[in-house]
């Protein structure tokens, strides 16, 4: 159930967001709600999010995940969100089904890396990066529901600002979530 179940009714619901293997387009779309963001900050508190620059996720009512799972850091962040968020939502094509990054799934990881870092046009000092600071890539890009339980999905590349707003306002008011035809698209 997509209910907030806030124990302290005086507290504003907490919302965390993260971009895993995405392009930040879904976050940009969230900012595209324009002046409605002033309403939103009155209604919710943001926890970890690129919008707040908070680096660790605390207990939240809602987690919005953009992007699929392509590397070990994505895995760690996604699992932390699942532990801390009562409701977890896959936002956008990449979180929902892997999206464009998952097109690499048809190729072996080594082939992808060699194409980019060894044989690629204009590559100098060829060699696959192996700095320990760089998260290890997984052999495949996964939709997030293959890794954790997901409570709701918002398709789109990105979901439009109106789609996100419809979802957020319905969720905040505890109403059933229903979209007009034009707000659901896969691209």
């Amino acid at each position: 159930m997509l209910s907030r179940e806030v124990s302290d009714v005086s507290a504003k619901p907490r919302v965390a967001t993260a971009s895993l293997c995405g392009c930040f387009g879904c976050h940009t779309s969230l900012l595209d709600i324009d002046e409605r963001i002033l309403q939103l900050v009155d209604l919710v508190d943001f926890d970890r999010s690129p919008l707040t620059d908070i680096k660790t996720v605390g207990d939240c009512d809602l987690g919005l995940i953009e992007g699929g799972v392509a590397n070990t850091e994505n895995l760690e962040v996604l699992r932390a969100f699942r532990r801390h968020c009562r409701t977890l939502v896959a936002v956008g094509a990449c979180a929902v089904n892997g999206g464009v990054p998952a097109m690499r799934n048809a190729l072996a990881l080594r082939e992808c890396l060699e194409e980019s870092y060894v044989r690629g046009v204009g590559v100098y000092h060829p060699g696959i990066p192996r700095d320990p600071e760089i998260p290890l890539l997984l052999d495949r890009v996964h939709p997030i529901h293959e890794v954790v339980k997901v409570d709701y999905v918002l398709p789109g590349c990105p979901p439009s600002a109106d789609t996100l707003w419809t979802f957020l306002t319905a969720w905040l008011s505890g109403q059933p979530i229903a979209f007009p035809y034009t707000q659901i698209h896969y691209d």
């Binding site: 089904n97 799934n105 048809a106 939709p143 529901h145 293959e146 999905v153 035809y181 698209h185």
Partner: peptide, 20 residues
């Protein structure tokens, strides 16, 4: 895609095959 919209598909739900 249009039929998927018509039947109310929000996500493909099942594990992706990712065929080659």
């Amino acid at each position: 895609q249009a039929v998927a919209y018509y039947v109310g598909m929000l996500s493909p739900h099942f594990p992706q095959f990712f065929p080659q």
